[in-house]
């Protein structure tokens, strides 16, 4: 019991150290640059306690739950040897974790406003919602396909940089043809798709697969799924923008 408490206390100190830079930055700008007092200090302090506890619990759960399940599933799929089910799982994981991502829902709604302001679609609520949903499913589809491609890459041992550089070339070509309004959103959509829960799971899946296949190096072949999942939405969102316009 005592050992657990000591471990918990150490983990909390670690979280506090991770969060200290933010507190310092905020305090410096508030007092030194903007020269204003802190509003409702009680609520702020409570927020700090919640953030420190939350980060500590999250990391504990990560090591106890998300990493082990991701790795044990990767090993189990590799042992089962069914390519179909592995691909199906990869697609579902990519699509399912992205389609409900709150950051993506927010970006899609903003994109619909831009499209309406630019007269690319009708300015009423229905067509806006339709546009936002279309965008959301496009991004989710592209993340699903990206994870599938990434898993195939791990199985075959393709070098990641060729896929990524090929993707960059596609992004550049699409940028020439895509409507200007969509470019900023398309570029941002790559970053918003990968959430806090998806990243550890997908990383554990990749590393687990690469470790359980003979001839693959977990460092070279295991990483890279996230990179593909952040690149493909850029291409697909620009295609979507061209298709709508």
């Amino acid at each position: 019991m005592k050992a657990t408490l000591v471990k918990l206390f150490k983990a909390m100190l670690g979280s506090l150290r991770d969060l200290l830079p933010i507190f310092l930055v905020i305090a410096f700008f508030q007092f030194a640059v903007l020269q204003q007092p802190l509003p409702n200090t009680g609520e702020l302090l409570m927020g700090v306690v919640f953030v420190v506890l939350g980060l500590t619990f999250f990391i504990h759960g990560l090591e106890q739950g998300l990493f082990p399940i991701g790795e044990s599933m990767a090993t189990a799929f590799a042992r089962k040897g069914s390519l179909f089910w592995l691909i199906a799982f990869a697609f579902c994981l990519g699509f399912g974790t992205t389609v409900a991502e709150p950051a993506l829902i927010a970006v899609a709604a903003e994109a619909a406003d831009i499209a309406a302001a630019g007269a690319m679609i009708e300015a009423d609520d229905d067509s806006r919602e339709q546009y936002a949903d279309g965008l959301r499913y496009t991004v989710a589809l592209s993340v699903g396909l990206a994870i599938v491609l990434g898993v195939l890459r791990i199985l075959k041992g393709w070098p990641l940089q060729r896929l990524i550089i090929g993707g960059y070339i596609l992004v550049v070509i699409m940028t020439i043809f895509a409507p200007e309004e969509i470019i900023g959103i398309a570029y941002d959509s790559g970053g918003v798709t990968t959430s806090t829960i998806t990243v550890p799971l997908v990383t554990a899946l990749g590393v687990g697969l690469a470790s359980s296949i003979r001839g693959r190096n977990p460092m070279i072949d295991g990483f890279g799924l996230i990179a593909l999942a952040s690149l493909s939405p850029m291409i697909f969102v620009m295609i979507y923008g061209m298709w709508i316009a």
């Binding site: 302090l45 919640f50 953030v51």
Partner: peptide
């Protein structure tokens, strides 16, 4: 593993709430 998922859930909720209280508004 199930406990781990629960910790992730609790941790992430507290983390987000804390951010909403102390960091995001400021």
């Amino acid at each position: 593993i199930l406990w781990g998922f629960l910790w992730v859930l609790v941790g992430l909720s507290l983390f987000l709430l804390g951010l909403e209280l102390c960091l995001f508004p400021l």
